[in-house]
Structure formats: C-alpha cells, structure tokens
C-alpha cells in the first residue's frame, strides 16, 4: 500500500519513504550492542588516523619512519617523551601506531572497495547473463575461493619483486571478490524473477540499463554490507604480509611493527612494543566485523532478535 502510494505521487514521497526506511534501519542498528561497539571503535580509529598528522609537526623525531630520538638508540620503555616507548633504534611507537591506523584504513577500504566493485559487477553479470556465463563465472569464483589468498599473493609477489602498498591493495582485491560475487549473483537471480524487471524489458530498456538502473540499486545494500567484511579481510591480509616481511618498505603498518619486534628479538623484552600493534589490528578488524554483523541484522529481517516465534524451554 505504502509503496504504491509512493510510486503514484512521485519523488518526494519516495524520498521520505527511503528516509523513513533509513531511520528505522539506523535505530535497529543502534539498538544492537554489537553494532554500537563496532561504531565507537571505528570512530576511535578514525580519530587516530587523523591525529597521525600531528606528532611529526611537533618535532621531526616523531616522524614514524625516519624520526629517531637523538638520545635513544635502544628500545626504551614508555615515558613522557615517548608515550608508548621507542623501538630499538629510537623511533616513537605511539606515532607509528597512529600512522598504522591511516594505512589500515587506506588498505582496508580501498581493497574492499575494488573487490566490491569487481564482485558486484561480475555477480550481476553472472546472475543476469544466463546459464553459460553464470556457470563459467561462478566456477572461476569457486576456484579463487578455495585458494589461500595470503599464500597466493605471497607467491605472486615473486613476480613483482618488492611490493608497494598499491600493488598489495590490488592483489588483495583480486583475490577477495568471489564471496561478494556469489551473494550478488543470488540476489540478482531472484530480482530477475520480479515483475518490474520484465516491465522494464517490455518497455524496451537495454540490458545495461536494466542492470545499472534496476538491479544495481537493489543489490547495493548487500554489496555495502559485504564491503565491511572485505575491509576486515583486507586489513588482515595486509598485516600478515607486512608481518612476514613483504610489506611496503615506505610505510609503517601495524603488521610491520610486529615484524620489527619479532625479527629484532624484542618480543620478550618490550611488551610496550609487542602489545599495541597487535591490539590495534585485532580491534580494527573486530570493529568492522561487528559493524557488518549489525548491518546484516538490519538488512536481513530473518536475523532480527524479535522476529518470529522462538520456543522457550517449557
């Protein structure tokens, strides 16, 4: 009834209807404690990433890569001068940690975005394009999905020599689209059965127009949801690569900080160095993951807490 009314009276009501749906979704999301924790954590990391620009302005020794405290040439414990201590050559760990947040967001969001674009496009094409195209694409997706992405990327790094952060982002994206494509494909398949697609076809809309004008807006929420999960896995893969010594040598990432503490043999002596990067990687992936789960509950009514009958022990 509501949808008909909105369609009948034009854009304004559609917008208010969407707005209302958005607000309702938001309130559902916010009611969810998991989603709320995730959101707060992300805000915290966002602030860290922004704050990473400040310390080098105060003193060049706070530069995360090149700044070395002239008086310290060993791993020093936390002090007023270095809130989280220094690494073995006197670089400030707190600054590195802040910069790491920036790199994590950069890698996570850009890799996730690219894999979502690839996954959504291929998923829509597979779902819309008919049987042959569908099975070819999905078989291909399956094949990539059974490959351990970290190890594939490692092997491919042989071809590139030294990896830069953008190559890492591209490689992660290339190996992380199949799960998205699968979900989008099944959504597209069910959308294809709906009358409004037939109507568009009868009205003479081209395939491209149907895909982008009618199907894309409907699969977009799901794609966005998957983006949060992709961010998680992208951050983990980048951190693992850096931890194994395959990171971009021109940036400081949390994984790289862990590699340094591990390889320089400070893991038993310098907890101030070992703990923060690990906590940050774990928490930022947790934050995105929690956001994703809460969004999933908003988007998929079947997962909601107050849904349907649930039988208690009687």
């Amino acid at each position: 009834m509501k949808a008909i009314a909105a369609a009948g009276t034009g854009k304004n009501e559609t917008r208010s209807f969407r707005m209302q749906a958005f607000l309702e979704g938001w309130s559902l999301f916010y009611e969810n404690i998991v989603g709320r924790i995730g959101l707060y954590l992300l805000i915290l990391f966002g602030l860290m990433a922004l704050a990473s620009y400040i310390p080098p302005l105060i003193d060049p020794m706070y530069h995360p890569m090149t700044g070395v405290d002239p008086d310290i040439s060993y791993a020093s414990a936390p002090s007023w001068r270095h809130w989280l201590g220094t690494d073995n050559i006197g670089r400030d760990i707190f600054t590195q940690l802040l910069t790491g947040a920036r790199v994590a967001f950069l890698v996570g969001i850009s890799a996730a975005f690219i894999s979502i674009v690839i996954g959504t496009l291929l998923g829509m094409i597979a779902g819309y394009g008919g049987r042959v195209l569908d099975s070819v694409l999905m078989r291909f997706a399956d094949m990539i999905m059974v490959m351990p992405s970290l190890l594939v990327i490692l092997l491919l790094s042989v071809l590139f020599g030294q990896l830069s952060i953008w190559i890492i982002v591209m490689l992660i994206a290339l190996f992380r689209w199949p799960a998205v494509a699968r979900v989008i494909r099944s959504q597209t398949l069910s959308l294809k059965q709906r009358p409004f697609i037939d109507m568009a076809r009868v009205a003479g809309a081209s395939h491209v127009r149907i895909l982008f004008r009618h199907i894309l807006p409907n699969v977009l929420p799901m794609a966005l949801l998957y983006m949060t999960f992709r961010v998680t896995s992208a951050i983990i893969v980048e951190a693992a690569l850096a931890f194994l010594g395959f990171g971009d040598p021109n940036t400081v990432s949390w994984g790289m900080m862990l590699q340094w503490v591990w390889k320089t043999g400070h893991m038993f002596q310098a907890p101030w160095w070992l703990l923060p990067p690990g906590i940050c990687i774990s928490l930022i992936t947790l934050a995105f993951y929690m956001m994703g789960r809460a969004m999933e509950e908003v988007l998929d009514p079947r997962l909601r807490k107050t849904k349907g009958p649930d039988y208690a022990a009687s």
């Binding site: 349907g308 009958p309 649930d310 039988y311 208690a312 009687s314």
Partner: peptide, 8 residues
C-alpha cells in the same frame, strides 16, 4: 499442547 511460542 502448551506449545505457545516464547512471546505468547
């Protein structure tokens, strides 16, 4: 049968 759902 006293099989009402939890919220019943």
């Amino acid at each position: 049968l006293r099989l009402l759902p939890e919220n019943g």
